[in-house]
């Protein structure tokens, strides 16, 4: 099967050719620079991907949890509290889109207030509003219609469907995810720039070699191949090291049990564990194109 010309040229550029590789002298510092850059950038990229995915998951979880529940806060005279509560629960039971509804017990109210007032709070003696937790069905209920009916049945009842909490959280989470993606793009661009610089430095240092090769009849593709292969393989190897180091780092991140609920889900889950393994070939590809572009541009300086 005949490959398209650009692909065939790329394959030719990467084909092993010991003699072509030998004509370029080994270059110590650019080799280490490329290797280290690729490793460090891939390591950072693994974390950027993990954080991006985790913030997405966290946002989804927060949104879902808040979107599926709402709270009715009932402020009524103590004598009417139970009666109005019952009326609201009856109303909710007949409301389409409401899956279930229940009034929070005194123990649950105490648990909610305990972080602020301590366990000894005499909750029975306080004029606290009654909280009713509403779990939505799918599709959900008509919030505006419910508010109107509540005001008729229980004038002291206020429906809080969490919209004003949910929106900024969802926005923050999507911005976090966007920042993560932007970081990945920036890391990739910075790596391409550094590999290009290293390749250009190597070509500059080997200007005499390039000149001799051109004068004895070497084509650009031949000269470029030696540089492109070298830098692509170095970047690939460095990236493999960085990806493995990044994965080990992710594995050692504190889990939800030890770090608390906020860190729940940091790292990879399911198929996303495969994502770091895509990085080395991608880094190799970036190195291939950036080195090739630098090499062919530099070669034009030699007739």
């Amino acid at each position: 099967m005949k490959l398209p010309k650009p692909i065939a040229r790329a394959v030719a550029l990467m084909s092993p050719d010991a003699r072509s590789d030998r004509v370029v002298p080994p270059s110590g510092h650019t080799a280490w620079l490329t290797l280290f850059t690729a490793a460090a950038m891939t390591f950072l990229c693994v974390f950027a991907i993990a954080l991006s995915l985790a913030s997405g998951r966290l946002a989804g979880r927060w949104s879902d949890a808040m979107a599926r529940t709402s709270t009715i806060r009932l402020a009524a005279p103590p004598a009417q509290m139970d009666q109005q509560t019952e009326a609201i629960l009856t109303l909710l039971a007949a409301t389409p889109g409401v899956d279930s509804a229940r009034a929070l017990t005194d123990e649950e109210n105490r648990a909610l207030l305990e972080p602020w007032f301590g366990p000894e709070l005499p909750i029975e003696e306080l004029p606290l509003p009654r909280l009713i937790e509403v779990t939505e069905g799918d599709p959900g209920y008509d919030a505006e219609g419910l508010r109107q009916r509540l005001s008729a049945e229980a004038p002291g009842a206020v429906l809080d469907d969490h919209t004003r909490w949910r929106r900024p959280l969802a926005e923050a989470a999507s911005k976090l995810r966007l920042l993560g993606l932007l970081s990945i793009v920036l890391i990739g661009t910075a790596m391409a720039a550094m590999v290009t610089l290293a390749a250009s430095a190597s070509l500059e240092a080997n200007a005499q070699v390039v000149r001799v090769l051109r004068l004895v009849g070497a084509r650009d593709q031949y000269i470029a191949r030696a540089f492109v292969r070298r830098f692509t393989l170095r970047a690939f190897a460095g990236s493999c090291v960085g990806a493995v180091a990044g994965l080990i780092g992710i594995l050692f991140l504190p889990g939800a049990d030890t770090a608390g609920a906020f860190l729940t889900g940091l790292g990879f889950t399911g198929w996303s564990w495969l994502l770091p393994f895509i990085l080395p070939p991608l880094v190799g590809l970036v190195a291939f194109f950036s080195t090739r572009t630098a090499a062919l541009r530099k070669l034009r300086e030699f007739r």
Partner: peptide, 25 residues
Amino acid sequence: PRDDVANLRRRIGVVHQDVQFLDHL
């Protein structure tokens, strides 16, 4: 084209004034 320049140079042997080699070979 540049590739043709390379091909032509394979038919011309040049001894340069500043004889240059690949010093690592």
